[in-house]
Design a binder for these strands. Sequence first.
RNA 1: GGCUCAGUAGCUCAGUGGUAGAGCAGGGGACUCAUAAGCCCUUGGUCGCGUGUUCAAAUCACGCCUGAGCCA
Length: 531
Amino acid sequence: MGSNSVDNHTFSITTPLYYVNDLPHIGSAYTTIAADVIARFQRLKGVPVLMITGTDEHGQKIQRTAEAREKSPQAHCDEIVLGFQSLWQRLNIAYDRFIRTTAPRHQAIVAEFFQRVWDRGDIYEGHQQGWYCVSCEEFKEERDLLPEQRCPIHSNKAVEWRDEQNYFFKLSKYQSQLEQFYADQPDFIQPLSRRNEVLSFVSQGLQDFSISRVNLDWGFPMPTDPNHTLYVWFDALLGYVTALLDPADEPTLDNALQKWWPIQTHLIGKDILRFHAVYWPAMLMSAGLPLPGRVFGHGFLTKDGQKMGKSLGNTLDPVDLVERYGADAVRYYFLKEIEFGRDGDFSETRFINVLNADLANDLGNLLNRTLNMAGRYCQGQVPDVMGDDIPADYDLKSKGAILATTVEAAYEALAFSQACEAVLGLVRSCNKFLDEKAPWSLYKQGQQAETERVLYAVLESVRLAAYLLSPIVPGLAIAIYSQLGLAADFNDRAIGQTLPYSVHSRWGYLPASQALGKAEPIFQRIERASE
RNA sequence: GGCUCAGUAGCUCAGUGGUAGAGCAGGGGACUCAUAAGCCCUUGGUCGCGUGUUCAAAUCACGCCUGAGCCA
């Protein structure tokens, strides 16, 4: 039993519901990996976790893309969804819910939520005309357009003139409530620079936004006026609520909100910050619901210092990447090498350098060399030593003793790079320690006891490193535990019970005298392809 | 035009008033348990530019330059 079992609090986290206009790109993979790591760390601590991802499938853009492919919108969505799900599987993403906004039960949730907002008097009919970008599903200000009425974001497509009756949500009504909320919850929007952006935006005055479209078939009809279709964001954001339903639940708001609401963390790319940090809380206020804990907008990825884009022809295909290098490698690179929140770059050279240096050389080889020695000097068993027997002046012991505290703080702050750095610090100390103690010489000199203490201290440090890195590289962690003779499935949702954090995050756990596994490289060095 | 964030070694970044740091990459060395891996040493920076405050500034203030982004 986990003695650290927490006061019945739960943890729910979302990725964006990805738009199924196309197959997943590396940015979606980046967000999803990060969310998975956060979820895995909470599970490790024994907290009940619900990790939500999914797809946003409505809107004119989808309708047109499907038409262009000569498929029905639903058939198109079904196909793209498979692409997302298969990528998440390859990347070892342990999500708990995959919500599709085309799900029938989602319609029920949207209708009920809409009714609450309607009853609150926050929806009214208005008139809207202007230039409309179908790709953005948004009206654009004329001054923002490029020459020839082109959308600045989708510069290859002309915007369309629209003149229509729409329904609006009274966002303006919530300006002061929102500002109060941001002041009361300074950590609601992260990182800080994103928060500043939002505060500045809101302080300029909020305008109501439209939540319906006419001339759009692919979406939910507005309950109070079936000639209108609900605008994608109103529909999509509510996917987070629908996702909370247990499969057997009747699709009602009460059921959905019972266990996991409010969401603790919405993880998003910085491009959709406004919807999550402004529109969404206002909608929830209108419906009288508690607000989420935080919205974290991470940065964008570049490739070799350049923006990625289809038009530039320099996209990075996540499927290709994971097929070539494996899930752990991809997960590790993006979280270790990019400071979460800032923009970051992918370059193949750096990718190979980082993985070889950290996972193959420092960590992988450390385990390998130590296991070999244990095989030779200790009959292939964990030395008959307990953590308490290790002299206090072994700095691995003192470093190991405080590592979990440091790493935990880093994970909680979503500072994955720091978490990796801290663990790597212990790993590097191990390599240095081995060279200083030179157990191969100790053994030859007949100093059996000291040899065993040294090897135990290193094996235990590697175990701890694996445990603390397991949210990021679950496959490696499993391999390391296995070679240490410990059965552990870090993909198990109940990991917090089977390998309790209070026990495994502490240096000194490794049981003495058990049989070690066979020493095999856990992470192959990547040979640089000759150009 | 207004605002935000960033600008420190080839690369990625720490350092927020008291004599410039880490990892990676590059160069050299000793060792051998190991996935030529780890260990040791080392090259490399007038901390974007300028002015000011201070006994003292990468660190504070003001101005400017460059990059990323927000202003529906």
